[in-house]
Nucleic acid binder design. Structure first.
Lengths: 137, 137
DNA sequence: TCAGTAATGCAACTCATTTGCAATAACGAG
DNA sequence: CTCGTTATTGCAAATGAGTTGCATTACTGA
């Protein structure tokens, strides 16, 4: 990951936050990142975490997703594009890839005359485990 | 719209809120609904609006969507399924339909062994108007 | 090495949403 | 129709995620 942001300085806190994000796989919210960062530097403040997340978001290195009610998750903005599958039962977030979204994008672009810059597909459902645990319905 | 919720009472405020939602087309957030409702009943309170929105959400009559940062939109849970196109420039939300999502659902269902109950597709981009207003890039 | 200023920590502040509580009113039983 | 139960309301206070002002610290380019 290139971490040379023009006009920005590389502080120990920023380095730590980037490290946490890079190391941890999956989806983290601001508080997860704060907690993990504090294990290494107990003096880091929550506002520093937020400020850095915003910076990373603006610079395009990370993407913010609102996958669950009241939870903003951050993830590295890595190609290739992938989408999300959220289990209603346990809240776990899975990722999947899908070729047909590009086709869909072009269709919608043509119909709407929008210039489309992003697609997000989110599916909800029950993961295999949670299907078993539900007798009801 | 069937408004017979077991164990619930039909108050004038609830009726008004349902009416506002039914009448206004498009996507409303809690504050929009509050504002519109107050035009008819200036004494209605914001917490009543929130409480009723939660009720409607739980009962499945409405769906809550997080289309923009910090904005929760509500809409009637009407079939047929449709998806959202958000303009990054002006914030307007458009809807579109798409046949290929069903196919996508089946594909993912097979691969993941999830039981999928919902799909949401959201695209971001610039609407025709906002494309013109942007010289940059 | 040093000055300029980006970044930090802290505490105080937003702003959307929720909650406790006392007062009100819907509606089913009688 | 009347009454009592209790769902619902309005208000004000509380919550909680995220932001901001400010004085201090510490990168970094000259």
């Amino acid at each position: 990951m290139a971490i040379k942001l023009i006009g920005r300085r590389m502080t120990s806190q920023r380095k730590l936050i980037l490290d946490v994000i890079r190391t941890a796989k999956g989806h983290l919210d601001a508080d997860d990142i704060y907690r993990l960062a504090r294990e290494k530097d107990p003096h880091i403040s929550l506002s520093t975490v937020y400020r850095n997340l915003n910076l990373l978001k603006e610079s395009g290195l990370m993407v913010e997703r609102h996958l669950r009610e009241g939870h903003h998750y951050f993830e590295l903005n890595v190609r290739p594009q992938h989408h999300h599958l959220v289990c209603i039962g346990c809240g776990k977030v899975f990722e999947f890839k899908c070729e047909s979204t590009e086709k869909m994008k072009r269709e919608v672009e043509e119909d709407s005359r929008f210039r489309i810059t992003g697609i997000e597909v989110e599916m909800q459902g029950y993961c295999p485990e949670c299907q078993e645990n539900r007798i009801d319905e």
